[in-house]
Write a protein that binds this DNA or RNA. Structure first.
Length: 424
RNA sequence: GGUGAGGUGCCUGAGUGGCCGAAAGGAACGGUUUGCUAAACCGUCGUACGGGUAACACUGUACCGAGGGUUCGAAUCCCUCCCUCACCGCCA
């Protein structure tokens, strides 16, 4: 969430930036400031009364020891009167603090200066592209047909076992998944990321920390019996590793990577966009997360974009990198780059990675801090990116590399996959 | 799931109603000394929100797992919840 002192000092900027993100409820900014003013007043009143109570209480103790009972009783009456005063103040203070918090978390993060104007995905700006779109023969088919032809994925079986959107990978399909995961992790580790295997279920505090709660509650699967959420991305448990921690500045940057399955309810999407692997409820992803010094977060973002680009390039897939416009960005992000790969048989671009700088927005929720050179705690900046999400990568590999003699496996995957071609 | 014991600062650990934001030791950091390593000595060594300041200083309040309660006063007593450890049961 945004920091109140910053809002106070930069109100005009905040309003302008929120508008850039197509945020409608600009009145909330004034509300936050008003609530904060009230909070300060009430805090002052409460503290002053409380200080008097403390002093009187200490005196009571001393008077009792001296046997001055009447004096003590007098003081007790004073305290009682003070408490009567204090009760309503305390209630109002608690209520105000709650309102302030609830209002504050409704404000999204401010988009960075270079975020393009725009409302829809069409207005995202392509900043780079690479790789060549393959020239497929006329009888080229989409991945769901290839999956059947080579017995790689069984979508119907997933329907039977669980429901729509839970594919079953099989034989060489399963092995290819495993190869991709292993390759992605090795690539990340080679670039200095530390591997984690986090839990796949998280509690409410954790889901709140990265911004899944309270807004996106409906997008997560929830295990009511134990009040746990299935993670929609490894970002959630991994970033929360450092929740409520104060790091030394020498410990920054923290670079973490994790493979996890990801679970998304994705309610409301049907039709051909969700065919095959394009959109599923459970998928695999390898994630990278960084906690960095605030001065270095944009350099870190560039580094992560280059990192993911290297990975996509190594798979030989045609790709483009988009800088998301204000209206298409996530609630918590300050700047996001999406990676899309071109699915030749479907003739469309598929998002396979999203790399974002959240600046201090998540860190403020999670209270992830470091001690700066002056010894004062300061919020870190958090970043994360997919490197990479599997299903659409798999779809593109299958589709783009199909040939008369079978599907050609990218060279970098062959040691992991154990073969160069998937043929019947 | 059952029984028992616990949750105190970066760590260990004392503290069972007021003098406790909290002893002591260790770690860490800064400094002095030393030819190096090591050691010794001195100092610093929580966080949040207020007030105050140009900024410091200074100062108020809260926080001893979380939330309630008792009391003039709670780390300390009571209740609920969460978690940890040990043993038993079950189990990959």
């Amino acid at each position: 969430m945004l920091q109140v002192p910053f809002i106070r000092q930069n109100k005009e900027l905040v309003l302008e930036r929120l508008a850039h993100k197509q945020f409608r409820e600009l009145g909330l900014v004034e509300e936050v400031l008003a609530l904060d003013d009230r909070r300060k007043q009430l805090t002052l009143a409460y503290d002053e009364t409380q200080a008097k109570i403390k002093i009187a209480s200490e005196e009571i103790g001393k008077l009792m020891k001296q046997g001055l009972k009447d004096e003590a009783e007098q003081r007790k009456a004073t305290v009682a009167a003070l408490k009567e005063q204090q009760g309503p103040i305390n209630d109002q203070l608690n209520e105000t603090e709650k309102q302030l918090h609830d209002t504050l978390i409704r404000l999204p993060n401010l988009p960075a200066a270079i975020v393009p104007a725009g409302k829809t995905p069409e207005e995202n700006v392509e900043v780079k592209s690479g790789g060549d779109k393959p020239a497929l023969s006329a009888d080229a088919v989409p991945h769901w047909d290839l999956a059947k032809k080579y017995d790689l994925i069984d979508f119907e079986l997933g329907n039977k076992i669980t429901g729509s959107g839970f594919p079953v990978y099989k034989n060489r399909g399963a092995r290819l998944q495993r190869a991709l995961i292993q390759y992605f992790l090795d690539y990340n580790i080679s670039k200095g990321y530390t591997e984690y295997q986090p839990p796949y279920l998280v509690n409410a505090d954790t889901a709140y920390g990265t911004g899944q709660l309270p807004d996106k509650e409906g997008q997560m699967y929830f295990v009511g019996e134990d009040k746990l959420y299935l993670i929609p991305t490894a970002e959630v448990p991994v970033t929360n590793i450092y929740r409520d921690e104060i790091l030394k500045d020498s410990e920054l940057p923290v670079k973490m990577t994790a493979y996890t399955p990801c679970f998304r309810r994705e309610a409301g999407s049907y039709g051909k966009d969700v065919r095959g692997l394009n959109r599923v409820h459970q998928f695999d992803k390898v994630e990278v997360v960084q906690l960095v010094h605030p001065d270095k977060s944009y350099a870190a973002l560039d580094e992560m974009v280059a990192h993911v680009e290297g990975l996509v390039q190594s798979l030989g897939l045609p790709y483009r990198i988009l800088r998301l416009c204000g209206g298409d960005m996530g609630f918590t992000s300050a700047l996001t780059y999406d990676f899309e790969v071109y699915s030749a048989a479907q003739q469309k671009w598929l998002e396979v990675s999203s790399v974002s700088n959240f600046e201090a927005y998540q860190a403020n929720r999670m209270k992830i801090r470091f001690k700066d050179s002056g010894g004062k705690p300061q919020l870190v900046h958090t970043l994360n990116g997919s490197s990479l999400a599997l299903p659409r990568i798999l779809a593109c590999i299958l589709e783009n590399n199909q040939a008369a003699d079978g599907i050609h496996i990218p060279q970098v995957l062959q040691p992991y996959f154990g073969a160069a071609v998937i043929a019947n």
